Simulated scan of single mutants.
Amino acid sequence: MQQTHFFFAVKIPKEIKLLIKEKCDKLKQILPFSTWVHHEDLHITLAFLGNAPSEKLSNAIDNVNLALIGSNGFHLEMNKLGIFGKEDAPRIFWLDTKESTALEAVRNKVFTACTEAGFQLETRQFKPHITLARKWKGDQRFHKELLDVWMDLQSEPLLFNINEVVLYQTHLDKAPKYEPKTIYLLE
């Protein structure tokens, strides 16, 4: 049986996923990454649980539900492209958001709810981003100046409303590979 993972994430609205897909179709011609994320899988991870035992997962679902009661939806604006990994051969290529105290607050509620359910979560500082692609495969070394291409693709600010947090389950053998399991509506 294939191992599955779970994670809580901010759901990106469908129309924004389609706009990002259009931009990624152009980026693919310029930036050779091995794998591009299916547009329906675009999200902002709040807490990665990994392979979650059912009792702990059930506790996390309940805790997040309680933690998000009274949380309001909010606006986000896409900011710029970035990378994780080696500067000359990045592992992850992403799009980040402008700073948002509302996003930070929702992330903190979800993160705390999951740790209280017994999950050991990533302790690095939260860097909200939408993963677009993985594994640089260019013949040339990657150069940070390539990230400036976003400005050429961006005719107007990419603003959108966030009103859902979702628990996703990963299916590595499918595309799209993230299945929504529980949806939390923000007021």
Rank of each mutant, 00 (worst) to 15 (best):
K86H: 15
W94R: 06
H43T: 09
Q120A: 11
S58K: 14
M1Q: 05
N59H: 09
N51W: 00
I44M: 02
E87H: 13
F119I: 00
A105R: 15
E40Q: 12
A102C: 10
P53V: 09
G118C: 00
I69H: 03
K28L: 10
N65F: 08
D62T: 15
K23V: 07
F74Y: 12
Q2T: 05
K56D: 12
P13R: 10
L46G: 00
S34C: 05
E40A: 13
I44C: 00
N65L: 07
I30Y: 11
L68V: 05
S54V: 14
F8Q: 00
A117Y: 01
C114D: 04
N51F: 02
A113H: 03
Q29D: 12
C114G: 01
G85H: 09
L31M: 11
K56R: 15
K86L: 11
D25I: 08
W94F: 12
F93C: 09
T123S: 15
A9F: 04
A105D: 14
G85P: 07
W94T: 01
F84R: 07
N51G: 09
I61Q: 09
T4C: 10
E104L: 13
L46D: 01
S58I: 07
F111S: 04
A60V: 10
D41M: 07
E122L: 06
N79K: 10
D88C: 12
K26G: 03
A67N: 03
L42Y: 05
V37M: 10
T4A: 09
F119G: 01
S34V: 03
L27H: 08
F8P: 00
A67T: 08
P53T: 06
F8C: 01
T4R: 07
H39V: 00
R107D: 00
A117M: 06
G73N: 10
A60I: 14
H43P: 04
F84G: 13
I83T: 12
N79Q: 07
F119W: 06
K56F: 04
F7Q: 01
K56T: 09
L19K: 07
E15V: 15
M1S: 13
F33A: 12
F111V: 02
N63H: 14
D88W: 14
I69G: 06
V106C: 05
R107W: 08
T45K: 08
S100A: 10
A47G: 04
K98W: 14
L81R: 01
E15S: 14
K28S: 12
Q29A: 13
F8V: 04
N72S: 14
F84Q: 11
I20F: 01
I16K: 09
K28I: 13
N65S: 12
K109Y: 03
I61K: 04
I69M: 14
A105G: 11
L49Q: 01
E40K: 08
N108W: 06
H38K: 03
H43F: 00
T97V: 14
A52Q: 02
R107S: 04
Q3R: 10
M78N: 01
I12M: 05
S71V: 07
A117K: 00
F74S: 02
H75W: 01
V110W: 03
M1A: 15
E116T: 07
L95P: 00
L76C: 06
L46C: 03
S58D: 15
V110F: 02
L68G: 06
I83G: 12
F33Q: 08
